[in-house]
Every structure is written in C-alpha cells, then in structure tokens.
Design a protein around this nucleic acid. Sequence first.
DNA 1: TCCCTCCTTGTTTTT
DNA 2: CAAGGAGGGA
Length: 759
Amino acid sequence: MSDPFDLVEHVPEGPADTPAMAPAPAMGADLNAEQRAAVEAVDGPVLVLAGAGTGKTRVLTTRLAHILATDRAKPWQVLAVTFTNKAAREMRERVGRLLGCSVDGWWVSTFHASAARMLRAHAERVGLQPNFTILDTDDQLRLIKQLLEARNVDAKRTPPRLFLGIISRWKDRGLTPEQVTDAEGADAADGQALVLYRAYQERLKALNAVDFGDLLLHGLTLFREAPDVLERYQRQFRYLLVDEYQDTNVAQYLWLRALAQVHRNICCVGDDDQSIYSWRGAEVGNILRFEHDFPGAKVVRLECNYRSTPNILAAASALIAHNKSRLGKTLWTERTDGEPIIVRGVWDGEDEARTVVERIETLRAGGHRLGEMAILVRAGFQTREFEERMMAVGMPYRIVGGARFYERQEIRDAIAYFRIVAQPADDLAFERIVNVPKRGLGPATVQNVHRLSRADGVPLSLAARRLVETDELKPQARASLRRLMDAIDRWRGGMTTMAHPDLARLILDESGYTEMWQRDASPEAAGRLENLKELIGAIAEFDTLGGFLEHISLVMDNDEAAEGDRVTVMTLHAAKGLEFDSVFLPGWEEGVFPNQRALDEGKDAALEEERRLAYVGLTRARKRAFVTYAANRIVFGYWKPAQASRFITELPADAIVAQAAAGLTRPTHAAIVDVRTELAVAAGFRTGGPVGRAPMIEGTAVRVAPRPEPRHTFAAGQRVFYQKFGYGVVVGVDGDLLKIDFEKAGTKTVIHSFVDTVG
DNA sequence: TCCCTCCTTGTTTTT
DNA sequence: CAAGGAGGGA
C-alpha cells in the first residue's frame, strides 16, 4: 500500500489477504463466560459495558479475530474504530499477533483516520480536492484571528479561543453552519460566533483545508449528499467495532449509525464510569441512545476485574457510587491479596513531591521497577514540582504529553515548508515560512501579497509569484521574494526527481532554516537541530512526502520510546487505558481535584466527571495506590490554604490507611463528619503574600514544616553543577536563590537546594 | 523592521 | 508566578 490517499478502490480482495489463522475453537479459549458472550454474539447490535480492567481490549480483538476466523467477513469488511492513536496502534498489534498476519490496509484506526480515509477517496463530493490539508489547533487559531481582524472584531474582548471552542462544539454535534438553530446562533457570542463559523468554513474550503471536526462533519455531509457512496460503505462494512464508546461525540455517533444501517452488526464497548471527555463533546448519552436506535441490542456486562487488588476495587467502587447518573456496574475480583491505599496529608507541594519521590525510592530499593510506577496528576502544571524533585535526586522519569514532538516550533516550521511545496494552495504554510528565517519579508510585504491574492482570487504563493513580476515591491523585498519563490518552484520539481528524505533535507538547507538554528546561540538550538534530524528520519519511513504529511496531521502524538526504567508522570486523562503496579495520585484537594472550574459550574455533571476521573486514576493501579493532599498550595503565585478533596472522604475507611506529615493532623475518616474542614483547621494555613516572602500563620495548632536545608553553602565564584543546566559559576546569592552563569545555558536563577558544588 | 519592556491573562483535559 | 501578546521606541 504505497499511497495512503488512495485506499478504498484498491483494497485487495483476493485470498492472498486472508490471514493464516488459528482454528476458530482455539480463539479465546481462556475467556470467562461474559467475555465469551461478548465475543460470540457477532450478529446484530451489541453493547458491551466493560468496567475498568475487565479485559475489554481483549474482547474487542478476539471478537475481530473470531469474525475473520469464522469467515463471516474479509478483513476489509470490518471497520474497527478507537478514539486515540495509542489505542488504535495497540489494537492493530494485538490483532496482528492473534492472527499472525499483517493488518496493513485494514480499517482498524481512529475515528479521524477512518473518516479522513473516506474523505480522501470522495473529496470532490463535498467540494474538496483529494489532497486537502488537515489543520491543527494552531492553524485554526491563526485563521480565526485573521477572520476576526478582517471583521474588526476586538480580539481582546472576544478571544479567538472562545470562538474556536464554540465552533468545535458545534462540529462535535454534527452541525454545519446551516444546521445551527437561529436561537442558538443568536445566543453564542451575540450571534458573532455563527457568522464567524460561516466565514471560517468558507475560508477552509478556499484553502482546500479541513480541521479535525470537519473530518467527521464532512463525513456526515458526504453520506447525506452522496447516498451512493454511503450505500457502498454500508454494504462494505459487514461488522463494526467501536472502542471507548463512552467518548464518542454526536457526530461520531451519527457517522457510526449511518454506516451500521444495512448489516446492523455493530458492537460498541464502553464504560460510562470512565467517560472523561464531555468537555470535548463526548456524549455519555450515546450509550443510552444505542439501545433506542438499535432495538433488540444485546447488552453484555463485563464486571470481573483482573487487574487490581480488592482494596483498590473497593475504594474505586465506593467513590464512583457517589455519582448519580450512571448505569451501574459492580466490579468484583477473586483475589484476596493487597495493601491498603495510603492517604497522606502533606504540608505543601514541595513536601508532596518529596514524599512521593521518597516512597518511589523505597519501592525501588525493594526491587520494584520504576516502569511499573506512575504519578497521575489532574492538570499539566502539577508535573513541575515532581519533575524538579526527581531531577534533583537523579530519579529517572519521563513526562508523557507536554510539548509534543509535532507541536514544537522547529517541527511546525519545517512541516510548513513541506506543505507549501506539496500543496501550493496552502496559504497558512506560506505565511508561516515566508519570513522564517528572516529574509526581509515583513508584514508590509505580506500585506501586499495578500491584497493581490484577494484581487486575483489565487493562493498566496501564486500571488507572490505574480507580485515579483511587478514593480510594486521595493527592490530588496522583491529580490528576496523572488529568491524564495524560485526556490519553492525548484523544490516542487524535486518531488518527482529526488528521494523525498533528500528533498526534505535540501529544503531545510537551501531555505536557510537549518542555518538559522546553527547560528542560534540559545541553549535549545542544539536540541532543535536534533529534532529536525529526527524529522527527516521519520519522513524516510513513508513512501511519499504526501503520505508523511497525512500521517503527521492525524498522528500528533509522540511515541517517544521509553528507554530505560523510568517513573511515568502524566495526566489522568492520558492514563486512561494504561495500568501500573503502583500509582501515585497527588493533589487531591478541593480546587485542584476536583478542579476549580468544575466546582464553579456548581452542577452535578461537572463534579461527576471529576469523580469519574478519580475513578480512572484509582483503577489504573494493580497493587497499590498512594493518594496525597497538601495543606497549602500555590495558586496564581499566592499561597492558599487547601482543603482535602471530597473524594478522599468518599473512600471507604477500611480500604485505606491515613497518614500525615509532621505538624499535620492525621485524618480519621470514620469519625469525622466534615473531614475537609477539620483537616484544614488542624493543618494551619500559610496564607497571603507572594511566593518567597515569609509565610503568615493563622490558626493555632500550627507548625511550619522545615524547609530542606541547603546541602552546601554558596558564595560568588563557586563552581557548581545543576542537573538541568550543567556546570556553571555562582555570580550572586539571594537567600534561597542562586544566580548562576552556566557554561551552556547562560545566566539563570535557581533554588540552592538542587545545586551541587564542584571541586 | 526589530527588539525590548510592560501588561494581561491564565490552570484542565486532546483527535 | 509564568508566558505570551501588544505597544512603543530605536
């Protein structure tokens, strides 16, 4: 399969594609009764309600294998969709292993990838060209900014993000601008949002571009406007498998429903208790609608948990039982072993990081692998303190998420170069690179190109080409723009004559982009050049530049190989679907988790989603969980007293052990009615004043946890080592803070306790 | 045209 | 407290 744009028409149908598979009876012989029921109920609609750790992926993959093994369908007649790239990858691997064959070209992928694949094949039916560009959030925002500017909307009062959010939610619900009701349209941002939505869609079409939401939305339009196409897919896909069904939004639901109409063999696997993406348009209601839209659907519950100890299950079950809106499942296990969950109060975030990392160190000393431990946080900002602590003590760790590979500046720049070469009409790419590196083509020149582009109704790159033939530009800008446009033409020629990795390198070299970073003296420059090299390497794995661009626009996650034995740090959202022996759950405080926004909304729905997130966190643990909450937390740069999370009070007393740091009162759950207040008062507050200033103490039973003693004394001129920036010389001392002139990283201010003396 | 400084704003979560 | 954007000055 060489061209990812061209799939449907050429799916091989011969026997060569039939995998050499194990005989059917052997398939999944070790499943339990419910799992087996879910696997073998192949015909007709099936809804599998699968609790955490009940073998849901196993059921899905076995079911797929079973369908093929019993010859009910050929591989290309099964559509299996998941939500994340990670899950899709895993399913492909497991199915491949199960059947002992390659799954290349099969319809086993994410919703977005499947929808994109169909859309590529029938782009013209919805007014697109097959090589349309898929925009990411960054592109979308810039586009919206431009539209707002053009309409003289004050970007300060109404931030572009807000509009993007509204438009995305509409798309999640499968609504084109025409389908948004007048009432709702008038309501959103005083009616401006709907006007903007229309303009935005027009602009996208002109750019031959789509955003993520469009992949599904245009997919629906395609099905509506081209019944022949829909019918063909309906007939093709005899079996549909859907993973993480609770995360589907309305558009995805409608898309599935349309496809399932003919054969009605659709199997959705999900867990309403793990629905944590409603903010992104996911509709738990889809689970309820399923039985309504597919009457007679068989419902299978998987409740036997194979992952966690009884204590962990008891805690998770008790917690989630506080949610009102749920279908209700009871997880059980045959196991009897297990440690209690430790719930520990700490002084502040720093204390929390120290405590958690110490515990990790103890486990490691006891022979546990770091790769089996994870710190799961509510929000990204919480990772910082753990990162600093682990860096300071030399604990190997990896942060999942954060600045992802394809979102880094240098990667996005490079990709913009490739895009403008492969897709001449890609105005966004043109704008991104026209003056990067600086070549004297500032806003004034770009304005000129824009004007001509609008007047002639042609893409920016074509307008630029025409502009250099006129004398409208100053000689310098004109020469510079001509050089750039000549180069782009040359690179386009290279697409047919050169190997594409070579072409990619040539583009980066000739454009001066590589040189720009080589000349850059900042400490990140070396890493950026490294990343660019890696990018070229990634390109080499694809057959065409176009294929690569398709891949990266859909697969934006970096599966950085987790080499070595490391602690994983990530958000609870990112942890869904994973499991670890030991799970650390910090920041269980009101306002952090459940987070402030959920509390502000004051609605049950938001709070219940937070609780589901807590449930997801606990159920990631196989053997032990460690929950912490701090008495004091820095919020927006100011100390605030914190209350233990209500979720802590919802854990059953007999499954946990309560602990507290010195100076803090140990929580006694069973007896205290409102543990939260009790804890907060007993703990004492450190309030007021910006960070760094001496804390003010309120309350009575207060003891301030001692700050860690500096391990060394420092003076100007002292040569030092700091893990993050390397070697340097102290140039100033200010209390806890050291100003250090680093050899590689320049002058930085760091906290003394992480700095080591040298020599 | 570019750079610097001041000021605002924000903290979920991701295909 | 951070980072990112806007605005002003060289």
